[in-house]
Design a protein around this nucleic acid. Structure first.
Length: 878
DNA sequence: CGCTCACTCT
DNA sequence: CATGAGAGTGAGCGT
């Protein structure tokens, strides 16, 4: 006759596993439910699999246990149980009760001891099965007692029999205690013997069997340091062994029949499941099929490099503690691959392993190994820190999604995975880490699982997204433009640009003095002190106290925007001072002070280019933004003196496209007059002035040229007569006349305006020269404002976006050319129509030739592209 | 902490 | 009817 089965569960440990295996779910009352839900799922699996006659769940009781008498630091330094978990313990207990499952706890004992004692007591009469998340329990394994330890997630468990323990560690289950005695256990704060890890402990135990045996043969241990440590920490070793020993004779009063598994009370269970608001559990209760497939991702960690089988194709992800990949620390790297390469699907490597595993470096640097990732620029930059050059990248989820639809800008993998309907959840970073002040890194298993799901999602997305891009004829844009550009941008960001901090400090001193003087002058004129930087307070002073005419309102009060104040300049002398104060204040706070904060220890500023953000395909620059360094006004332009070459004898070199957007407009509109003007090499603003004002070249004065320039810009952006009138400070009919005359003269442009809107409405998107798309559903909006905005976008996006395409291609060509020519010159920055380099002085002459050549020849339009260049000792001079 | 406003650039 | 495309940062302020 077979013996009855007794199941012993470690309540605390399994609750922990459930809690950390699942995202932090809450029900509609705001009560956290993830641990309760996960525990329930575990329980169902366990009951299903083992069909026990008897079952008991043991709980820890009391912060202080009998072990603390031996060692008062036992379990010291442990993180407090999170409140989100603590509040779920009563729920879990109620669910167990509803299941008809016995529970037991005993003052000053841990769940381990209860389990150990009962296992010991019923070892002969029952088939004992222990389930926990704590490997310590494996010491209880016998021929008749089997221990299951959770591995990953909530269903995957490792079965420990005496054979398995021997196979895995080469020792018997009771020797697990001796192993702990020697190596200690950091999670329980058991010290062990310093310098002895798992390997040494196992070696010693295979030879001398027990801790006692080791010390009896201390003289035979020749390794000097090891012998020394064993001798010094003899007492600590024996104490550690004692601490690690599970009590198997605890004073436990559990009658055998109390543990009989009676089966659940369905009504009570339903109440509990309703509280959890789990449709899946409720459906199950009704006997229905589960409502949704849920897949757990599993992963493998390694404790040594030898024997790792490296896949031929894989996706990779690096999880960081923070959002700046140039500076923030690495948490873990995950690599997902085909199931035929590894049944678990995902490898994980911690920071040390990335730095040390030579085979990993070789694999990452092997161009023939195909890699997929999301935000490869970030990954390449991070790996660069470890001296690793990432090669073989063929896919980037972030970039691909952005190309497919620019409204996917900077989306997290979590969101992209959801959009692609992948059959498992990728959590949002905010849910894993919290945000703002509450942000904190969870435990290893949590972020590693999180990172594993990301790598898996990238892997699973490849066929779907690649197909999508090919379908929309954007694969080339993605694979041949954006992907190689990502790598170049990574190099530029990593290189950084050198900054002379003393220039900024001098400017700062000067600005502070001028600001102080302006401040007191403004207070004198206002007759009181107030915060000039507060638009609200300033509004009161200008429009109520002084009584100036409010021209424009914002939703919060009077507008004090510069264009408003400029119109009031003649009304009061305070206006000019305020405008200057705000300009200089901006220089000081954002540029002088802000930039100094961004200087790294290498004396350089390392901006990051956002490649998957703008709706038109332009890049943007953050931390800091180096695409808006002042130039228009002399005071601000001086900031550029701080940007210098990084080596003695080097210079900065800058090359910018002249009128690239108007040239693109000429190309796509096929306007004859515009094309002709560019082909003749004419000054386009003067040319426009001649046409709009009906005058000869000689008659165009600076005012006319300025107006024509504003019209040209307005045309690109889809300006209205009102807008132009505001801009040029002229009457609305005058502005209207300018625009009408312009469109009459450049009739191809007029045709383009109409056609671009029509085509975009028909297709649903506007498109650039290199097939970049911007979807414009608002073209059909019934709101005039929203529709008008979309119409201007339909006109502007092909212009701005094509210009962005062109300079991106030029960057790729330029990078290749620098390599070909074997130059030391480095590309450092891109500012929309401009590229900034640094180079040894002797290379400047070469750059003057090849940079304009490459930029001009990167694409053939109906008009020539023109590039101007300059070099100098600072950015100010170029 | 998030929004608004102001300033900076192409 | 409201009124020029695309961006980022910092100060003030209300919650």
């Amino acid at each position: 006759m077979t013996k009855p089965k007794l199941l012993l569960l470690d309540g605390n440990s399994l609750s922990y596993r459930a809690f950390f295996a699942l995202p932090l779910l809450t029900n509609s009352q705001g009560i956290h439910t993830n641990a309760a839900y996960g525990f329930t799922m575990m329980l169902q699996n366990i009951l299903e699999e083992h069909q026990p006659e008897q079952i008991l769940v043991a709980w820890d009781k009391g912060k202080v246990t009998f072990r603390h008498e031996t060692f008062k630091e036992y379990k010291g330094g442990r993180q407090k149980t999170p409140n989100e978990l603590r509040e779920q313990f009563p729920i879990i207990r109620d669910i167990l009760t509803a299941h008809g499952i016995a529970q037991y706890e005993l003052e000053a004992y841990e769940a381990d001891d209860i389990i150990g004692t009962l296992a010991n007591r019923y070892n002969d009469s029952h088939e004992v099965i222990i389930i926990s998340g704590d490997k310590d329990l494996t010491q209880l394994v016998t021929d008749k007692t089997t221990v299951f330890i959770t591995r990953k997630g909530i269903t995957d468990m490792e079965k420990y029999t005496p054979e398995h323990v021997m196979e895995k560690y080469g020792i018997t289950p009771p020797q697990i205690i001796d192993m702990k005695g020697l190596m200690g256990d950091s999670s329980d704060n058991i010290p062990g013997v310093p310098g002895v890890g798992e390997k040494t402990a196992l070696k010693l135990l295979k030879q001398y069997e027990t801790v006692e045996g080791v010390y009896e043969h201390l003289d035979n241990i020749t390794a000097k340091k090891l012998n020394e440590n064993l001798t010094t920490y003899r007492d600590q070793a024996f104490m550690s062994k004692q601490l690690a020993t599970i009590e198997v004779n605890a004073p436990i009063d559990v009658p055998a029949d109390m543990m009989n598994y009676a089966g659940p009370d369905l009504e009570k269970l339903r109440e509990q499941y309703e509280m959890l608001e789990s449709k899946r559990l409720l459906d199950q209760l009704k006997g229905d099929a589960p409502s949704e497939m849920q897949v757990e991702i599993s992963y493998v960690t390694f404790d040594r490099e030898e024997g790792i089988v490296w896949p031929e194709k894989a996706s990779l992800h690096i999880e960081l503690d923070g959002d700046n990949y140039l500076t923030d620390p690495v948490l873990v790297m995950t690599i997902a691959m085909a199931e035929k390469e590894c049944s678990e699907g995902v490898y994980t490597f911690d920071e040390r392993q990335i730095a040390e595993y030579e085979s990993l470096k070789v694999w990452l640097e092997d161009e023939t190994i195909i890699k997929y990732a999301s935000d490869t620029k970030a990954i390449q930059s991070v790996l660069h820190r470890y001296g690793i050059t990432l090669r073989g990248v063929q896919y980037d989820l972030l970039l691909a999604s952005y190309i497919a639809d620019a409204s996917n800008a900077q989306k997290e993998i979590a969101q992209l995975a959801e959009d692609l309907a992948l059959p498992y959840e990728v959590r949002r970073d905010e849910d894993v880490y919290g945000k703002g002040a509450k942000r904190q890194v969870p435990e290893f298993d949590v972020y590693t699982y999180h990172a594993a799901t990301k790598a898996k999602a990238v892997w699973d997305s490849v066929p779907i997204v690649e197909e999508q891009l090919k379908e929309s004829e954007q694969y080339e844009l993605f694979h041949d433009l954006e992907l190689p550009l990502a790598s170049i941008l990574s190099e530029m960001e990593t290189e950084g640009i050198a900054v002379d901090e003393t220039v900024l400090q001098t400017l700062g001193k000067d600005l502070s003095e001028r600001l102080a003087m302006l401040e007191s002058d403004i207070y004198t004129l206002a007759g009181e002190t107030f915060n000039i930087n507060s638009p609200k307070q300033l509004g009161v002073i200008l429009f109520e106290k002084i009584g100036l005419t409010p021209i424009k309102k914002t939703k919060t009060g009077y507008s004090t925007a510069a264009d408003v104040l400029e119109k009031l300049e003649h009304e009061h002398e305070i206006i000019a001072l305020i405008l200057l104060y705000r300009q200089l204040g901006k220089l000081n706070s954002t540029y002088v002070e802000g930039l100094q904060k961004e200087i790294h220890t290498d004396g350089k500023i390392h901006t990051r280019f956002q490649q998957a953000l703008t709706t038109t395909g332009r890049l943007s620059s953050i931390n800091p933004n180096l695409q808006n360094i002042p130039i228009r006004l002399e005071e601000g332009r001086k900031i550029r003196e701080a940007f210098v070459p990084s080596h003695e004898g080097w210079k900065l070199f800058a090359a910018d496209y002249s009128q690239i957007e108007l040239r693109v407009l000429a190309h796509i509109s096929e306007d004859e007059k515009l094309i002709d003007a560019f082909q003749r090499g004419a000054d386009i603003h003067t040319e426009t002035a001649m046409n709009v004002f009906h005058v000869s070249r000689e008659e165009v004065d600076s005012n006319m040229r300025r107006a024509a320039k504003a019209v040209n810009f307005g045309i690109i952006y889809g300006i209205s007569d009102y807008g132009l009138s505001q801009n040029l400070n002229i009457s609305r009919p005058e502005a209207k006349k300018f625009i009408d005359t312009y469109l009459h003269t450049f009739e191809g442009v007029k045709r383009y305006m109409d056609k671009s809107i029509e085509i975009a409405r028909k297709r649903g998107y506007a498109e650039t020269l290199m097939n970049r798309r911007r979807y414009l559903p608002d073209l059909n909006s019934s709101s005039f404002n929203i529709r008008s905005f979309a119409e201007r976008t339909a006109m502007n996006t092909p212009i701005q976006g094509s210009a962005a395409d062109i300079i991106k291609r030029a960057m790729i060509d330029m990078n290749a050319r620098l390599k070909e020519e074997g130059l030391q010159a480095k590309m450092l920055l891109q500012v929309h129509d401009e590229l900034i380099f640094e180079a040894p002085e002797e290379e400047i002459a070469i750059l003057e030739k090849i940079v304009p050549e490459v930029m001009e020849q990167t694409i053939q339009l109906r008009v020539p592209l023109k590039v101007d260049s300059a070099s100098g000792a600072s950015w100010y001079e170029v």
